[in-house]
């Protein structure tokens, strides 16, 4: 990356003027959509009074942040958010890459497209619908598992929605089912882009299928894997609200294992609708996410500078 341009001279500006011109719409979009709203960060530090307006509302320092750290829930929701996301990132990666490789190995021309559509479908479903699909399996009185499957195995019903201990598994399963398909398509595109000659050469040298996968495919899509993973790590402090709120059907009993930062904030502010406090949660999540992405990018850069994001 030593040839990177540093500083803009007038000559270069002239030379690349069409390119700069083409840059403008993108930059304007970024400014309006991503930078202008950052002004809203000040809301997190104010006691917003609509009669006075945002600018004239009183400053309250960090008071809006207090509720996030006040009780032992703070520990539970932070732990849940981070651990769930770590598990999701790791499992999604493994499952999605495996799916991508399997799709590529199919010799038939049409089957991969069919399979792609099928595994993508859950990703396009609203979490409310997913919630009720799960409910049709787990409902304690009318669900498929309690009424058909468990009796077949000679076992009694399980109170799924009253027992938090099952939910880390249920949620992980649902999450992988709904997002791995989407990620696998990204990886599939990367695998398809690999030059055939590598494989032909490897086959001539007598490499087995597994060897070809682990020595050619995986190393060559590593940059894509790292970018996708870094992007997800940046959002490790955010959680899939629909998954944690809709899928357990907002069952309070399950909160020890289903409450995450986003659902905590939603529940806390549902009644009082305080925008200062909700902005505080957003600011907190963005700052931690920003720091985490800087750290992980730094680590990647240490290991292999070419694979880092910036």
């Amino acid at each position: 990356m030593s040839s990177r341009v540093t500083g803009i001279s007038l000559k270069k500006l002239k030379k690349y003027k069409m390119l700069y011109l083409m840059l403008i719409p993108g930059v304007v979009y970024l400014l309006i959509n991503n930078y202008a709203p950052m002004f809203g960060i000040i809301i997190a530090f104010k006691d917003v009074n609509f009669a006075k307006g945002i600018m004239n509302s009183d400053w309250v320092g960090l008071k809006n942040f207090e509720y996030l750290f006040k009780t032992e829930d703070a520990y539970i929701i932070t732990r849940n958010t981070i651990l769930y996301n770590l598990v999701f990132i790791a499992l999604n990666l493994v499952v999605a890459v495996a799916l991508a490789v399997l799709l590529y190995e199919l010799k038939n021309r049409f089957l991969p497209r069919l399979y792609q559509s099928i595994i993508l479908l859950p990703y396009l479903m609203s979490s409310v619908i997913i919630g009720y699909l799960v409910y049709s399996l787990l409902s304690m009185e009318t669900g498929l598992i309690n009424n058909t499957i468990l009796p077949l195995l000679g076992r009694g019903g399980v109170m799924w929605y009253n027992d938090p201990k099952y939910w880390p598994y249920i949620l992980t399963l649902v999450k992988i089912w709904s997002t791995a398909g989407y990620l696998s398509i990204v990886y599939f595109a990367a695998v398809v882009g690999i030059d055939h000659e590598y494989y032909e050469a490897a086959t001539l040298d007598g490499a087995s299928k597994l060897q070809r996968i682990f020595k050619i495919t995986i190393p060559l899509i590593t940059p894509v894997i790292i970018i996708m993973t870094l992007l997800q790590i940046g959002r490790i402090f955010y959680s899939d609200f629909g998954l944690f709120y809709q899928v357990p059907l907002d069952s309070g009993v399950l909160m020890p294992t289903t409450n995450v930062i986003d659902t905590y904030v939603y529940r806390a502010l549902l009644k009082n609708g305080d925008i200062g406090m909700s902005s505080a949660a957003g600011v907190y999540q963005s700052i931690v996410g920003f720091i985490i992405i800087l750290i992980s990018n730094y680590v990647v850069k240490k290991i292999n500078p070419d694979n880092s994001l910036f």
């Binding site: 006040k70 009780t71 309070g252 009993v253 529940r267 009644k271 009082n272 406090m277």
Partner: peptide, 18 residues
């Protein structure tokens, strides 16, 4: 007391309905 109420609302949601 909105800070306390935010935390209390979560507790109530956890237990009340059950």
């Amino acid at each position: 007391v909105k800070t306390e109420l935010a935390a209390i609302t979560n507790v109530v949601r956890q237990f009340q309905s059950g």
